[in-house]
Design a protein around this nucleic acid. Sequence first.
DNA 1: GAATATACGGAGGGAGCCTCCGTTTTGCAA
DNA 2: TTGCAAAACGGAGGCTCCCTCCGTATATTC
Lengths: 179, 179
Amino acid sequence: MCKLTPKPRKPRADQIRNRERLLEAARKVFRSDNGSLEAVARQAEVGIGTLYRHFPTREALFQAVYAREVAALEAQAQLGELAAWMKAALEMMATKGGMVAALEPVLDKDAPFFTEQSARMGAAVGRLRDQAVAAGELRPDVTAEDLMRVLLGLSYGPGADASRSGLLLEVFLDGLKPE
Amino acid sequence: MCKLTPKPRKPRADQIRNRERLLEAARKVFRSDNGSLEAVARQAEVGIGTLYRHFPTREALFQAVYAREVAALEAQAQLGELAAWMKAALEMMATKGGMVAALEPVLDKDAPFFTEQSARMGAAVGRLRDQAVAAGELRPDVTAEDLMRVLLGLSYGPGADASRSGLLLEVFLDGLKPE
DNA sequence: GAATATACGGAGGGAGCCTCCGTTTTGCAA
DNA sequence: TTGCAAAACGGAGGCTCCCTCCGTATATTC
């Protein structure tokens, strides 16, 4: 009388367990190792096939791992302080190297589909940015994507130096004022 | 009577020819393909072993390919205009994706040896930066490495968008003024 | 034209990516 | 409980890339 959908089965226990193991392993491996997916599977003591079934693409795994970080940044964005938010985001990226992975998809124009994570992230930043523009605190020709790009650029790639990126963000924020 | 060194032989013709082919092939492959070294060798119609003999590491190949670009930027730096130079560098990177590879080594603190290319590049930027500081046009707390970092960050990695990076550099340069 | 230093090519071993499918486990109904 | 089909598991296997090593080919030199 209740379930009109075919047959809702309880998810299997091993499925849940393995997913958890994989996420845990991925966090470790992404932070140190070269980030090979096979290494993640090994660390999780799970077959490589299992990894791919849970997370069909590398992206999917990244997204899942850093969903929590995204949520935190999203919450922080509620406060409505653009400059403060960018500093917090930078901080987060500095301490948690892999965090950048969560930002990437937002910027990838070619992404086959806008995932929920990146959509939420993008929306949060967009809101912040719009408020700042409305308040006359931000050059209107700078978009939310631009802001993400800079954050990513400052903390990503070879030569990224956490001890300097704070200063560089400062410089950038200075330049962001209109007029 | 002249050569005290053992036996100076003329370099073989095929050696020179192959080196040229490899550089040409590398330029093409780095710009489009995934940048696999095997692809470079194939494109050059040369054995993989030959590639490795000429360029023992990926870095070595990159460096050779972009040595000319570096020289151009170095020349441009002679003009002594920091802002103009950064714009030119950005432009170059936008049109020639692989150019970033030439900048990377400058930023890599862990590089086992400071190559000539990166040393020249670093020196050129350092000079520009010092002049700008002396002229009171640049915050003295920003180093030459910082400048490179930003250039790299704006044009490198996922989401890099040549059409936006010009504006972002503008913003950054605005923020660079002291006071 | 021969000798020999020099360069060439690619086989081969290691590793990662991803797919596919036979085997095992699990939830559910009888 | 027991049985069974759905769901999940694991890893072999086919592909590509990385890099080394060494037998073969060739340009220079005498």
